[in-house]
């Protein structure tokens, strides 16, 4: 009995030993890679923040509304954006390198998938950023127009436009990644159809009541003289 337990214990220790012998060196190497990655990423970010000026890019971000999209409209610096992107990219590269050290089929597949998906991911991310910017721009245009034209519930109009445009960019991004293509397109089409039907009903209702708006329209016409006198 004791002998048998000793044997099992020995085998277990031997197995642990072999596991350690097998995984410890790559783990240590991976740890070292992670440490170097961390060091590199922080250094790169620090250097980029301090050395980049990017005035033109700053003004592009400001003018395009992307800076505002990120809720840092007045204090935005492109150097920070570039540094953050570089920081994230170094971490991704370091992480993949660290995984590849283990040289197993699972990590290999993971790294392979990530590498093949990377360009598509970048394109999808850009599409989403562009979609978010366009949604913001159009939503703001609609908001200001609706307020100036005294259209009821301007924020809802703006929100509707924002959702429609941004979800279109999600659809296109999903298409790029071949991700749940039909489900997302289907959802978007339903959303779009709903918006069109609501708009048509609203417009029809408005036109039906247009007859009773006579005196107000007349009043507006009379008042226009004010605005035509610059």
């Amino acid at each position: 009995m004791t002998e048998s337990m000793n044997r099992i214990w020995g085998l277990t220790l031997q197995r642990i030993d072999s596991y350690i012998a097998l995984f410890l060196p790559p783990f240590l190497v991976a740890l070292a890679i992670v440490f170097v990655t961390w060091l590199l990423a922080r250094t790169a970010r620090w250097l980029l923040v301090r050395t980049s000026h990017g005035g033109r890019f700053d003004s592009f971000l400001r003018e395009s509304g992307i800076a505002n999209l990120l809720h840092r409209p007045l204090h935005w610096r492109s150097a920070r954006l570039v540094a953050d992107v570089a920081y994230a990219a170094i971490w991704v590269a370091g992480g993949l390198l660290a995984l590849s050290v283990f040289d197993s089929s699972a990590t290999g597949a993971m790294v392979g998938t990530a590498l093949s998906l990377l360009p598509k991911l970048v394109i999808a991310a850009l599409l989403l950023v562009f979609g978010a910017w366009l949604a913001q721009f159009l939503a703001r245009s609609i908001l200001i127009w609706a307020v100036n034209e005294n259209v009821a519930r301007p924020r809802y109009w703006a929100l509707g436009v924002r959702i429609l445009v941004f979800s279109l960019s999600v659809v296109v991004a999903a298409e790029t990644l071949d991700f749940a293509r039909y489900a997302i397109i289907g959802t978007y089409l339903i959303l779009l159809a709903g918006a069109v039907v609501s708009l048509s009903l609203g417009l029809g209702y408005r036109l039906r009541n247009a007859g009773s708006d006579g005196p107000r329209a007349e009043e507006r016409e009379r008042e226009q003289s004010l605005w035509h006198h610059l």
């Binding site: 400001r62 003018e63 509304g65 505002n68 409209p73 703001r140 245009s141 200001i144 307020v147 100036n148």
Partner: peptide
């Protein structure tokens, strides 16, 4: 250019 210039001007109304 804090935001698009047309938006700035139109929001003055």
């Amino acid at each position: 250019h804090r935001i698009e210039r047309g938006h700035i001007l139109r929001s003055l109304t």
